[in-house]
Amino acid sequence: MRKMKNIHVIIATAEWHQDQLRYRRHRLAEFLQKKSDTEEVIWLCPTPRRTTDNFTTLKNGIKQWTIQDLFPQKVFRFGRYMDLFYKNKLTTFNQYINQIKKKNRLIVWFTFPGFPYIANGFHWDTIIYDCSDNWTNSISGKKSFVSYFRQKVIQKAEERIIDKAHRIFCTSQYLHDQVIQKIEHPSKSHIYTFENGVEFDLFREKKLPMKAILPDRFNGTVLGFIGGIKSKLDFELIQDVATKKSNWLFLFVGPDQTTENDGFHQLLNNKNVVWTGSIDPFDVPKYMQLIDIGIMPYKASSYNKAIFPLKLFEFLAAGKPAIGVHLPSTTKYVEQAVYNHLETNDSQAFIQACEKLECEKDCPEYIDRRIQVASGKNWNDIFEGMLQLV
């Protein structure tokens, strides 16, 4: 008799390649895809584009199922959280799930609080909420009627998912505490914290740095940020530091997801600021070779209080010291010449902290220590720990 296998459905924020980045959810899906007891992994996500084929198989074997938004404009994304606007679009998906549920164990992973009806209207063996962001708060921190409406809609959707979830995983203690405040059940034993990790082996491979990125004949200190460039970053802080430290080079690597009002494009007017644009996520270790100090300069905001940055352990795995600003979830990793953290956007304090790291960046003892810290944060180990609780 055939042993029952697992069907994993990942409720994701966007189509697989849309963000041009590899987030926690991408790594989770690929991890589950490789497990021997997995029958298939389905990536169910919204899409702003019109399509006649909402079901495709990706090159990695994961099946992508898209749900079309009301309209392509960003303002209409609230429809992802309200049953009225997407429930009927799940009919075909529901039929497919009903066909396979008798022969397999069905597990759904909500990686954002979208499509809450899926938690209520389907028969799952296990419902998981993998909470990686403070979804009800705006990234930019700007307040308006639209942002207030969005907050309330997402809050209600998230509460429905939390209420139905058998397991809840959070990427920071802040999110863990926030979830506990939202839960109605007296038991909190099904809520766990699993921070973000690193593909450690990928960063330990010997890779040559990318060429023709830095200015000719530049041999000074490079401060680098790698990841999605968003409004949650403090561009005013970097603008001030770049002006005061003209002998430093600031390297930004990743897709620009800002608006003209966020300050990033103004920052690029500085001769000592370089932006590469989007890159292949698997080339990140090559770009790490160009960096002397990894920077994570975030604004002070409710949204950023919840963040555990994906890049922290990647910097350390590459042997690079790092500095974070307004990232309280990372303070327990503060260690001399390894990681420094600031709770201020004062440019002089940032400069002094980086100057200290600059003096310590090439010390073999400290390089080994950074790598050692990162070695205990491998993604596969994190996901194995989560899976044991499912």
Rank of each mutant, 00 (worst) to 15 (best):
R24I: 08
L28E: 13
A29T: 09
T38K: 10
E40D: 07
V41A: 04
V41F: 08
L44M: 12
P46S: 03
P46Q: 03
T47G: 05
R49M: 08
R50E: 13
R50T: 12
T52H: 12
K59Y: 02
K59H: 07
N60R: 08
I62V: 12
V75R: 10
R77P: 00
R77T: 05
F78R: 01
G79M: 02
D83L: 01
T91F: 13
N94D: 10
I97W: 07
N98I: 00
N98D: 15
N98Y: 02
Q99A: 09
K101G: 00
L106N: 06
W109L: 08
T111G: 02
G114F: 01
F115M: 12
P116G: 03
N120A: 07
H123W: 00
D125W: 04
I127F: 01
C131F: 02
S132C: 13
S132V: 15
W135F: 15
T136L: 06
I139A: 04
K142S: 12
K143N: 11
F145G: 11
Y148S: 14
I154H: 04
I154L: 02
Q155C: 06
K156Q: 13
K156H: 11
D163G: 01
D163P: 01
S172W: 06
Q178D: 14
V179S: 03
Q181L: 14
Q181A: 12
H190R: 11
E195P: 02
N196A: 07
V198W: 00
R204T: 12
K207H: 11
K207R: 15
P209Q: 09
M210D: 05
K211V: 12
A212C: 08
I213S: 03
D216K: 14
R217H: 14
N219G: 03
L223F: 06
L223V: 01
K230T: 14
F235D: 09
A242T: 03
T243Y: 08
T243H: 07
K245T: 03
N247E: 15
W248F: 10
V253Y: 09
G254P: 08
T258H: 03
T258D: 07
T259W: 00
E260K: 14
K271D: 14
T276D: 09
I279G: 08
V284I: 14
K286M: 12
Y287R: 05
I295D: 04
S302T: 11
P309A: 05
F313T: 00
L316Y: 01
A317H: 01
A318Q: 01
A322C: 09
I323N: 06
V325M: 05
L327F: 04
T331I: 14
E335T: 06
V338Y: 01
H341Q: 11
N345Q: 12
Q348T: 13
A349I: 00
A349W: 00
C354H: 01
E360T: 01
D362F: 10
D362Y: 11
P364D: 06
Y366P: 02
R369M: 09
R370C: 03
Q372G: 00
A374G: 02
D381N: 12
F383C: 04
E384H: 13
G385T: 08
G385A: 07
L387V: 11
